Simulated assay, not measured.
Amino acid sequence: MPLCKLADLPRLLPPGGRLMGLDFGTKTIGVAVSDAALRVASPVTIIRRRKFSADAAEIAELVESRNIGGFVVGLPLNMDGTEGPRCQATRDLTAELLLRLDLPCAFQDERMSTQAVERAMIAEADLTRARRKKAIDSAAAAWILQAALDSLPSTE
């Protein structure tokens, strides 16, 4: 399925389908999942990057087990809104993933997501650096997914 606009994602999902947020990093992939009502994002796990086929297989298992109907992928824009090499790498990984998993997908600006999550972890949770490092990528994926969910048109 091709990429779509974020606002179109809800109508492309099967009934009860959830969204998966993905934050592609150089060493890990942060994963988050929405609730079925598309209101709340929760961090799920991190995937240690290996060969992409293994990463995609791990994502496919999560898609199957969690009733995922679409993806929101964090797009690492530069601070001035332009796209750099990391954006192209993210677009390439997303295109490769969509060849394997035929689900609707939209991009979400992820600028400052990791910094926002890290600040919250320091201020609110008072986590040590080691514990933050373990949780930051999935929390950033949840932050990205929550931003996308918050921007969706209301169904009420």
Score class of each variant (00 low, 15 high):
115 Q>T: 10
85 P>T: 10
112 M>L: 15
92 D>K: 13
156 E>I: 12
144 I>T: 02
93 L>H: 06
83 E>N: 10
120 A>Y: 08
80 D>T: 15
119 R>E: 11
79 M>Q: 13
126 D>N: 14
151 S>L: 12
75 L>I: 08
135 A>S: 09
112 M>G: 06
114 T>K: 08
120 A>N: 11
116 A>M: 14
83 E>V: 12
124 E>Y: 08
97 L>Q: 02
148 A>W: 03
144 I>N: 02
87 C>N: 07
134 K>I: 05
92 D>G: 05
129 R>A: 12
142 A>H: 02
155 T>I: 15
93 L>Y: 06
78 N>V: 02
109 D>I: 01
91 R>Y: 07
135 A>N: 09
103 L>V: 01
80 D>Y: 07
112 M>S: 11
131 R>H: 12
84 G>F: 03
136 I>W: 01
77 L>N: 00
82 T>A: 15
108 Q>H: 11
149 L>D: 03
150 D>P: 06
145 L>W: 04
98 L>A: 02
84 G>N: 03
132 R>V: 05
82 T>F: 14
122 I>F: 04
89 A>H: 10
100 R>G: 12
151 S>K: 13
131 R>M: 13
108 Q>Y: 10
155 T>N: 15
120 A>T: 08
134 K>T: 09
149 L>A: 05
76 P>G: 01
140 A>V: 02
156 E>A: 13
123 A>M: 14
83 E>S: 14
117 V>C: 06
135 A>L: 14
131 R>N: 11
141 A>C: 11
92 D>P: 04
76 P>Y: 00
108 Q>T: 10
98 L>F: 05
126 D>V: 08
85 P>C: 10
108 Q>A: 12
127 L>A: 06
103 L>E: 00
111 R>C: 08
75 L>N: 06
120 A>L: 12
125 A>M: 11
145 L>R: 05
113 S>M: 01
117 V>E: 03
154 S>W: 07
109 D>M: 07
91 R>L: 13
103 L>M: 08
78 N>D: 02
117 V>M: 10
119 R>H: 12
93 L>I: 02
75 L>E: 01
138 S>M: 15
118 E>I: 14
119 R>M: 09
103 L>C: 08
91 R>W: 06
